[in-house]
């Protein structure tokens, strides 16, 4: 379905604001520019927050989906 390869998965399930974002900030530094990180979260607020965070930082929110209460975000490191 897509041509990107996930370089790292961050499990942020059962964490509340702002931890999914803070952990993502840290984890994205472990991948190279141009690579993709996958984040799994259960905080419903994270949907809006990952939109805002990527808008502010310039990293690219490539995809978001939800399945049985687990949100999955794919973010491309851009810098």
């Amino acid at each position: 379905m897509s041509d990107f390869k996930i370089s790292k998965t961050l499990d942020a399930k059962n964490l509340s604001c702002p931890l999914p974002i803070l952990r993502t900030k840290k984890a994205i530094e472990d991948i190279k520019i141009g690579e993709f990180i996958e984040i799994l979260a259960t905080d419903p607020g994270s949907v809006a927050d990952f939109n805002a965070w990527t808008a502010a930082t310039g990293h690219e929110l490539i995809d978001k989906s939800e399945e049985s209460g687990i949100y999955r975000f794919i973010i491309k490191r851009t810098k």
Binding site: C17, P18, I21, L22, T24, K25, A52, W53, A56, T57
Partner: peptide
């Protein structure tokens, strides 16, 4: 502390 850490994560 929530706002400080989140803002720092947003550069």
């Amino acid at each position: 502390l929530i706002l400080a850490t989140t803002a720092a994560s947003m550069d």
